Simulated assay, not measured.
Amino acid sequence: MKAIQFRSFGGPEVLEYVDLPTPVPGPGEVLIDTSAIGVNFPDIRERLGMYNRPETRVGGVTLPHVAGLQVVGRVSETGEGVDPGVVGRKVMALMSKGAYAQQAIARVNMLVTLDEMANDVAMAGLPCQGVTAYLALRVCAHLQAGENVLIQGAAGGVGSLAVQIAKAMGAQLVFGTASTESRRAFVRGLGADHAIAYDTPQWPQRVLELTAGRGVNVILETIGGEVFDQNFECLATLGRCVVVGSTRGPGEALAPRRLMAKAQTLAGVYLPTFFQRPALIREALEFLADGVSSGVIKPVIGATLPLSETALAHALLERREVQGVIVLDPNL
């Protein structure tokens, strides 16, 4: 089979289009003939070796490595303990590695079957970012219908799905932040009630004005830097802030006692942690599949490229030249 592999850390040029043996599914696993493969920022961080640094505390990867976290395709073989009836079914799967290939292994408890009419490319853009957004809102923030939500970096992959998921969960007001007017227009098009800039010191006051001084109940934090600290200026009493990322770095340390005055909660979400809770992964995947089927969630696909051009996909994503998810076609 054809696959993308890297044998050393570095830029997109380390990605090699190679022939590898077809993997064999073990107990509780299936082999998927892939039809569409999603590209994510964690794939880039793996390639750069960022997860192999001690300070990341996540264990890293072993070289050589086939990256990739999400696929759509058809099950062609099952491992021990898996119902053979799943063979031939179209599925959407989340995995820890190995998606950048014409055939990939997935745990049966981390995939869902799809309707035959489901769009493979659209669904392949969902699992990693969509599951992260769902877990942050439902499991970590315990979002309730009628609450107000602020999504930082709402034009990004996780943020754009979080806006739609929050609305589908019954949020009253959804705020999305973005750095440019064109990106804020994109956020409004996703269904956000308000799109605001986060690069001025006054943005928390704007959120307070639009919530009659109450602030928001939930914040999904993706930016870091000085924005992280500013979040608490517009987080309501009993509000929950969930750290999903920090594109500007961690910023200043938070004084824990700051949370006490308004009984606020600070949490974090890291997707691989939930691989130990596969029932939550499947719950999220089912929510996403149902949301797309009903039309309340619309995946944003920025580009579709051949698997052989994965290096270009990484370069485009790093330069932020594509708005939406990049999907790879393993058959081109």
Rank of each mutant, 00 (worst) to 15 (best):
N217F: 11
I165C: 14
V216T: 09
L280P: 00
T304G: 04
E318M: 13
E221A: 03
I301V: 06
A106L: 00
V66M: 10
Q129G: 15
E181Y: 03
T265W: 06
M169A: 15
Q230S: 15
T180M: 05
G156E: 12
R282G: 00
G225Y: 11
G295P: 11
D199W: 05
A212G: 10
V325E: 04
M92I: 04
N331W: 11
V75K: 01
E77Y: 05
S294T: 12
G26I: 04
G68A: 04
G130I: 05
M95S: 01
A133N: 11
V30P: 06
Q5P: 04
A154P: 11
A185Q: 12
Q102E: 08
W203H: 03
T177F: 12
D193L: 13
L280S: 00
G156W: 08
R240W: 09
L220K: 07
N52F: 10
G170P: 12
G225T: 06
G268R: 00
F175N: 12
D83L: 00
G85L: 02
D120M: 14
G291W: 10
K262D: 11
G38N: 06
T310M: 02
P306Q: 06
L288W: 04
T22Q: 13
A253Q: 10
E252N: 13
D115V: 02
L266F: 02
G157E: 12
S160T: 14
V325N: 05
R257D: 07
E77F: 03
C234F: 14
V187T: 15
P27T: 07
A185D: 12
L210H: 13
R214K: 15
A141Q: 06
A171P: 08
A178L: 08
R214Q: 14
R277Y: 01
A303N: 12
A67H: 03
E309F: 09
V227Y: 09
A289C: 11
S182I: 09
L259S: 04
P21F: 02
